[in-house]
Amino acid sequence: MDITTLRELRLSQRELLRLFNKVFRYDYVDLPLLETLTVLDPNYRDDDLYLALENGEVRSIVFLGLMRMRIPKDLEERFKGLAWLKAVGCVNNSAPHLDKLLEYVEDRLRCLGFTKVLVYGYSPWYLAPGPDVRYEEVIRVLRKRSYSLFTAPVDYLGEEAEGGGRTVDYLVDMEHFYVPNNVIEKRRMLEEQGYKFEDVHGPAVEEVANWVEKHFGFVWATETRLSGKRPWAGVVVARKLGGGIAGFAVYGATTVYRFGPIGTEAAERGKGVGTVLLYEALMRIRLSGVRIAVIPWTGHLFFYAGVPGVCGIRKYFIFQKKLS
């Protein structure tokens, strides 16, 4: 078995895209998502992607996420000594290759001074929240190597960790999606009270991102800013009478079919603002030509379960390990 990196292997973008979809067979990696994982991640280097080969064929992948960008000082302590594995996978019957590759990467991280690792939990430049529960070989290898479910009440990115090491995606079949009459009526009533709902995209997203950072933190603000860089993406914003922001819902930030994040100001909750934002953002995904939309990485089961067209749930584990 040989271990190499993407830099050494020199795969083209097309070859890398096909490789990801071969190894991560329960994930659907399109070009926008691949760009999110690589060139749009300010921390990305092509020698962070490690591959195990047998007779020239890739058998397993471990993709590091190391925080190299400037971050708020209040998060520096949370990130101290932490590395992410933002993608871990292997083709069928390749558990031994993944085991050896993980051992190699862990040794490298120890040499670099890292003391703990998270698999995945790497928002917003993520393949998925964590390994899909159907990747049985991957999960078996992780547990063999003493990885455990992430259990901290607040995650390393400073957001509430809903469900700890277990989380889900909702899949929405947009052929059956529609805006219910009660949501249409709710929007009408809010507009009569002076609320306005508008679509923000491009450079104008920065104003919204600054508000999001103040109310919801660095990670959600970073994902909001990412939407301003994608031609299909944007933010639906609810504004109060007078122009102040009451809430927001991002669509298409990491790839065209993904929804979120979404949030409303604490004083505005319970009025239906978030519900209207949810449907407005999902409708924009539908109008982008998407067939299956994804509401990712959530524990708010009741809020999303009633969306017309919900056709499936994907379940994930997020793992952690101390290296010292």
Results as ranks from 00 to 15, higher is better:
F218T: 06
V119K: 12
F218G: 04
L6K: 04
E106S: 09
E223C: 09
L37H: 11
I313T: 14
I295E: 02
Y178E: 11
P124S: 09
L33V: 05
T151R: 15
G252P: 00
E268F: 08
C311T: 11
E57I: 01
K240V: 11
C111F: 05
Y170D: 00
F302I: 08
L33G: 03
I292Y: 13
C111S: 12
L101H: 01
R188C: 08
T151W: 13
I262R: 03
R188G: 10
I3S: 06
F63S: 14
R7V: 03
L142K: 10
A253P: 00
L9S: 07
W220E: 02
T275H: 09
L11E: 04
F79E: 01
Y257P: 00
L37W: 11
G194M: 11
L241E: 08
R314H: 15
L9M: 13
E76L: 10
G228C: 08
V290T: 03
P72I: 13
I285V: 14
R134G: 02
A161I: 04
C111V: 07
K322M: 05
R230D: 01
L85H: 03
S227Y: 04
L75C: 06
R284Q: 04
W125I: 01
G234M: 04
F114C: 05
A52P: 00
E106I: 15
L82S: 07
A233G: 09
R166E: 02
L149E: 02
L6S: 02
G306F: 08
N210S: 13
Y120C: 13
E57V: 04
Y195F: 15
Y251C: 01
A128E: 10
G243C: 03
E207A: 13
H176R: 15
N92K: 15
E185L: 15
Y251V: 01
D199P: 00
E103N: 08
R78Q: 07
H300D: 05
L64M: 14
T4G: 05
L102D: 03
G158Y: 09
E57A: 04
F24I: 10
G274F: 05
H201I: 02
R7K: 15
L149K: 09
M1P: 01
I295D: 02
V29E: 02
N21P: 03
K73M: 12
L6D: 00
C311I: 05
A249K: 11
V200D: 02
R269M: 11
L85N: 00
K229F: 01
M189D: 12
R25M: 12
I61V: 15
G165M: 05
D41M: 07
E191N: 14
T5L: 07
F20S: 06
G272I: 04
